[in-house]
Design a binder for these strands. Sequence first.
RNA 1: AGAGAGUUGCCGGAGCGGUCGAACGGGACGGUUUCGAAAACCGUUGUACCCAUUACGGGUACCGGGGGUUCGAAUCCCCCACUCUCUGCCA
Length: 425
Amino acid sequence: MLDIKKIRQDPEYFKRGLKTKNSGDKIDELLELDEQRRSIISQSDELKGLRNRVSSEIARLKKAKEDASGKISEMKQVGEKIKAFDDRIKIVDEQIHAIMITLPNLPHKSVKIGFSEKDNETVKEWGEKPQYDYPLKDHLDLAERLDILDFHRGAKISGSGFPVYKKAGARLERALINFMLDLHTQEHNYQEIFPPFLTSRDSAFGTGQLPKLEEDMYLDNADDLFLIPTAEVPVTNLHRDEIIPESQLPIHYAAYSACFRREAGSYGKDTRGLSRVHQFNKVEMVRFVHPETSYQAHEELLQDAEDVLQALNLHYRVVSLCTGDLSFAAAKCYDIEIWAPGSQKYFEVSSVSNFEDFQARRANIRYRRNSDGKVDFVHTLNGSGVATPRLMIAFLETYQTDEGTITIPEILQPYTGFKQIKSQI
RNA sequence: AGAGAGUUGCCGGAGCGGUCGAACGGGACGGUUUCGAAAACCGUUGUACCCAUUACGGGUACCGGGGGUUCGAAUCCCCCACUCUCUGCCA
């Protein structure tokens, strides 16, 4: 949520910013409604003040056994006027709210102005594309030969996009999750959270999934609960409607969760294998920080995510999203794209975003300043650290041997319990 | 799922429909005292919004959420959510 007071102060700034995010301009309409709202509130408040004064006067008269019927009927009139004003306030409030919740966050000034994905900038590459002196297979081919993934049976039991991990594949998946969690909790000082996988409408609103992305989430209609598309939702909402003492900031959480995405409207895109699935595993990092430190925290968070890939020695690049490609709630975002040599493609495995106070406003997450005791919104950030399906793609394709087996890097061996995955065929 | 009890400020805990933004206790903060600390004593102790922005300014709202009754509601009525206890079911 944007700050209506700031919009009031400098509407042109917001108009420009929203334009770079390809968002329609409702600012004038909003300011008109805001004007109305404040005017009606003033009138209503004035009458309420009158009513309060006279009502205590009535109390005094009654106590003194004097006649108050004149004032009572007078206040009855006032009461009706107040009700009329308040009804109008309610309507205008709803109209304002309806607009406010659809306005995306403004991009940070360091973000390149651009229309789409094509304008994103690669800001960094780590490692090099590994070279092989034998022909490479893609992850589907490898997985089939090794019998570690089963897409057909997944489709049978749930539908397409629900892969089944089998045997060494299941173990490898679990190993990756545990490895990442340990890295973040032990090396990067995140507190571990195991969140609920279903959340309320309020929570989904708080992080910005609602109302825009309702169609992308699975909904349990009977209870009006959403299956989480990312642990960001429950973990960020941990502190919804709370005031955090400044001394407790920053707060760093790392959480594993299964993630559920309907991927409505993306049919035909990356449909093969693990590249786009409806259910997947992810370790997510979430930070609640002091507003002044959020951009530093953003860089640290990126590094924490990169560390996963560096530890596994997987080549990747970091892309800074342009204004037009930024998600609804983000002010700035880095995507980490991992190299999959068998597919000869980069796959996005992580999004590292700074939401500034956008989510904090929606979810009402504040902190109390030591200096003056006042409250202000925290800044929230999150980053995947990382999502497993595309990590798995790159992992299998990178560590394949000429025999079609997979070599497990040493750092992961304590987690897998084996050093290689051998062909079953 | 059924029955009952509850939901008040940072916490505990009062609150006949009329100075209740809310007693009392604790905590925290500031001050007095002290070489220092503890104790004691005095004081302070929310959030949002509106107006004014010369101010240490004025006003409104908020006692789980939403409606209603009333001149006036934390207090009465209705709906919903959550928590706890018991019963049932279940991993």
